[in-house]
Amino acid sequence: MKEINSIYIIDDDHITVFGIKKMLKTIVSCNDIEAFENGRLALDSLRERIQTGVPAPEVIFLDINMPIMDGWEFLEEFVTLDLKDKIIINVITSSIDPSDYQKWNDFRLKCWHYLNFKNKPIYRIEVTDLNRINITSLP
């Protein structure tokens, strides 16, 4: 069982959050899984962690379509944060709009974190999704 300090799930869909949490349970041991309904809330939490010296999450599951602040807007601000470690970000979306995939690729190339792309539905989370390698799964 892989051990991870902290995981963020940023998605306004409760069912997806439930699913991700459930799937994580089978492959990872983590006591700090936090879920946020939009990018803004996640960013606020991240900033607080940086300020208070609490380590940032190692893995983030990020939805694209969310109110207030969507996944892309979150990434826009996220890349400006002062983070010491590379973070694995799994972009998870039900969108099959090619422009979303293009955007993911643009971000992947310009940010130094690990960016994966996963289309819903997802049935399991692989250990590789939690390792620091760039992969994408397309339907």
Binding site: D13, I15, T16, G19, N65, S94, S95, I96, K120, P121, I122, Y123
Partner: peptide, 9 residues
């Protein structure tokens, strides 16, 4: 898709 994905999952 997002709903059917949820069903599927």
């Amino acid at each position: 898709r997002s709903h059917t994905a949820n069903f599927s999952m």
